[in-house]
Write a protein that binds this DNA or RNA. Structure first.
Lengths: 146, 146
DNA sequence: CCGCATCCAAAATGATACTG
DNA sequence: CAGTATCATTTTGGATGCGG
């Protein structure tokens, strides 16, 4: 068997009636969405104009759309810090924090397979090397602390 | 400290010169791409028209585009099984297998946060419950066996 | 400061028919 | 079977202005 990859589908213990990847992508798969979550979670960039400045190419129109979608789907919520001048901070809900393993997966992939783009020295690194204090990584199933 | 979330950015041990999430998304972030990888890896659906049938909404034009992009970026490669009638099977390269943890993250997220869509009984499940024989999950850094 | 509205341009994707 | 060609539609980008 060594070296041969089975041609059988990889099946879950409990059948899916709809594909969870497709379901997740329906929300997370739109352009800019995961970068917005990255800003809020990793960079602590959580205000409208900060996010705009942090993500070159993103426009106010689309940011408004994405924030609405993410809020509608229960991943983020606004905190009104101050009115006049209005200050709003966006934060991840528990559900939103469930996306962190996906973001870590993307970091890990980029750090491994695009090291010349990601690192000055061009050397690949693993997520464990980059974020040792975060291992083991929580899975989406492990509820993040509020 | 309990219950308080630091406002400081979460920094990697080695600084990024470009964001690995954005870098990864440049390839993987286009519509249908991750579902195509899902087909090849999980479902063992690896031929053009099979993939088309497996992913409702995907059209031949876009599938052609995505296969070209994935191939150009080194994630998949064609195996010509037969000519006339032509039969091509697509398979993941090592780099392509590096996306499996991302796919698992999406599965985990969907199975946890959209259980009523994903499962007949509507009960949330973790990736460990669904794929016990695959735990611990490989990270993108752990080279998948060829 | 945080958005929303509008108008238009460009890019990405969808529908359908077709070829080697 | 694997992929193209052509055209329609949707989504996103860019600029600007407005209101709470």
């Amino acid at each position: 068997m060594r070296g041969r990859q089975s041609e059988l589908p990889i099946l879950p213990k409990v059948a899916f009636v709809n594909c969870p990847i497709r379901t997740s992508m329906g929300v997370l798969g739109k352009k800019w969405t995961l970068l917005i979550l990255r800003d809020i979670w990793f960079l602590k960039v959580d205000r409208f104009n900060q996010i705009l400045r942090s993500i070159p190419g993103l426009t106010p129109r689309v940011l408004t759309l994405r924030l609405k979608e993410l809020r509608h789907d229960g991943m983020i919520e606004p905190v009104v810090v101050q009115t006049s001048p209005k200050i709003v901070r966006w934060r991840l809900t528990k559900m939103g924090k469930g996306t962190v393993p996906i973001l870590m997966g993307l970091i890990s992939f980029g750090a491994t397979w695009y090291p010349s783009i990601v690192f000055e020295d061009g050397k690949p690194r693993t997520a464990e090397e980059l974020f040792p204090y975060l291992s083991g990584l929580p899975t989406a199933g492990a509820k993040a602390r509020q």
